[in-house]
Design a binder for these strands. Structure first.
Lengths: 102, 102
DNA sequence: TTAACATATGAAAATTATATCATATGTTTT
DNA sequence: AAAACATATGATATAATTTTCATATGTTAA
């Protein structure tokens, strides 16, 4: 069985598995935001924000452009949020279902 | 802004971010498989398989039942594979699109 | 061109995830 | 009941991820 596509999928899931990165992506849904703005918005220090953004950028989930002295990040492919929504649906589904335990 | 749902989502993505676990889930799509069978199928040692399965079970992605001396695992909610498919679609999309660089 | 601002980056520290090893637990077969 | 088999578990080791700190880089404003 060829499972190369699963390696790719796990790469994407790894990107989405970090809450900070998820928050960034969700916030970027409908507008571009600068590094400092994100840092303030998420209450995470500038350097950490920058590191995480660079990961997202390296994997082409976001893109940048400079305006004045700030650098604005935006979603490169909004489809990525569909995946997030699927996961959110799944979790609300599980929570309602309460299959096991409690 | 309430972002609790993102914590949940990141939890799910974390589960899916490991290639071994993904392979397990995909293999379990249409049939139940025992620990030993999975171990052989994925060529991963029994203990590691068992550890990973217990993570999946703790988070209600799989469920078990015993048959004879083996314990069979199966998907608890096949919907989880929809999320995997979204991610696979996304990656093939990106690969075809080749937005940046090469 | 110097000062101030915004972002990026490298290295080290801290945290978290995963694999491995030894062995325990529980079930079946003899 | 003992032996054999299948799975689980705890402890430790290894590896990967994330944060922090210090500072570099590049742009704009004075």
């Amino acid at each position: 069985m060829n499972t190369d596509y699963l390696k790719e999928a796990s790469r994407i899931f790894k990107l989405l598995s970090n809450e900070t990165r998820l928050k960034m992506l969700v916030n970027l849904e409908d507008k571009a935001i600068s590094v400092n703005e994100l840092s303030a918005l998420l209450d995470i220090e500038q350097s950490a924000v920058s590191h995480q953004l660079s990961i997202l950028k390296k994997h082409q989930l976001v893109d940048t452009n400079r305006i004045g002295k700030s650098i604005y990040y935006r979603l490169d492919d909004p489809h990525i949020l569909d995946i997030v929504n699927e996961a959110v649906q799944h979790s609300s589904h599980v929570i309602r279902g309460k299959k096991h335990g409690e």
